[in-house]
């Protein structure tokens, strides 16, 4: 388990992270979402031990990651801006990884090379941006980490490759207990792979939760009332937001599907429909409830 305890980071006088705390359970896929400059990359670099936090700590199973070889041996960081040794081929890079990661698996490496279809003897500097991204993922996974920190990993991958990577990650989670932490500014990207999500804004986590829990506990209700009904009356059932157009009311209501059903039926609508929210819609609702403009927090 990763415990992020009150992590702060300053660049000179500029505050990048301000007391960030979160817990990431083993085997989960954690999505870290936030707009540009929200501190996602900084948090990942602290989490993989590159940066020393100015305050707080990041613990992996109770051990601080900073300058801790034992912990870092289980963590691989895939930067948004990959680095490869000058003139190195994929094979050279694999040798490099093998020389520093104790769990590096040549079998996995060979398997992934086949899967991605990358040339082993060509210089990586001649690869396309997408191929370089694939190379970084391939090498990172070959190191057989317990925790994989991915910064904008899906950027630059074509849709097919994106799906392939997601599938590989899901397999690793299922088979080897990998815990990927994926930072992205694109919520839609994370929705279909992550089971946990954290929202970072202006150096702080606005909230973090399991996606399923989020989805299960909030629903949109579209209802038609023949009678006259006021917004205040509808709000009594615990709505997050309400929109009314004539006889049709659209409300976001907290609660499980059954709870929402009970609540809405109590208002005696002529017709109603309970629709699950997309992750983006949940975020919009959550942000609005916390007084933020969602479009300024994400995207």
């Amino acid at each position: 388990m990763i415990s992020i305890n009150g992590v702060s980071k300053y660049y000179d006088t500029l505050k990048s992270l301000d007391g960030v705390s979160a817990e990431i359970k083993e085997g989960s896929i954690f999505g870290l979402v936030g707009s540009n400059g929200s501190g996602k990359s900084t948090l990942l670099r602290i989490m993989c031990g590159i940066f020393r936090p100015d305050g707080g700590e990041v613990l992996y199973d109770g051990e601080n990651v900073y300058e801790n070889v034992k912990v870092k041996d289980r963590v691989v960081y895939l930067s948004d801006d990959q680095f490869f040794l000058p003139s190195a081929t994929l094979g050279d890079m694999a040798k490099m990884y093998a020389s520093v990661y104790s769990s590096f698996s040549w079998d996995t490496y060979k398997k992934l090379v086949e899967l991605f279809g990358l040339p082993r003897t060509r210089k990586i500097s001649t690869f396309s941006k997408g191929m370089q991204k694939q190379s970084a993922i391939l090498l990172g996974l070959s190191a057989k980490p317990k925790y994989l920190l991915c910064d904008e990993t899906f950027d630059g991958l074509d849709p097919v490759m994106r799906q392939l990577v997601k599938r590989i990650l899901a397999d690793e989670v299922a088979e080897n207990g990998l815990t990927p932490i994926i930072a992205s500014h694109n919520l839609r990207e994370l929705e279909d792979i992550c089971d946990h999500i954290g929202l970072l804004h202006k150096g702080g986590i606005l909230f973090e939760s399991e996606i399923d829990t989020l989805k299960e506990n909030i629903h949109t209700v579209q209802a038609v009332f023949a009678r006259e009904i006021g917004i205040e009356e509808i709000a009594r059932i615990g709505t997050v937001s309400i929109k009314q157009r004539g006889s049709m009311v659209t409300a976001v209501v907290r609660g499980t599907r059954d709870e929402v059903k009970t609540k809405i039926e109590g208002l005696d609508p002529d017709f109603y429909e309970i629709i699950p929210l997309t992750l983006e819609e949940i975020f919009i609702s959550e942000m609005e409830e916390r007084g933020y403009d969602y479009t300024k927090v994400v995207f």
Binding site: R45, G49, I50, E67, K72, V75, Y101
Partner: peptide
């Protein structure tokens, strides 16, 4: 270089 510095210091090696 920032990229190489980040790469090397993410590796499981002490400084």
């Amino acid at each position: 270089k920032r990229r190489s510095a980040h790469f090397y210091h993410a590796l499981p090696q002490k400084r």
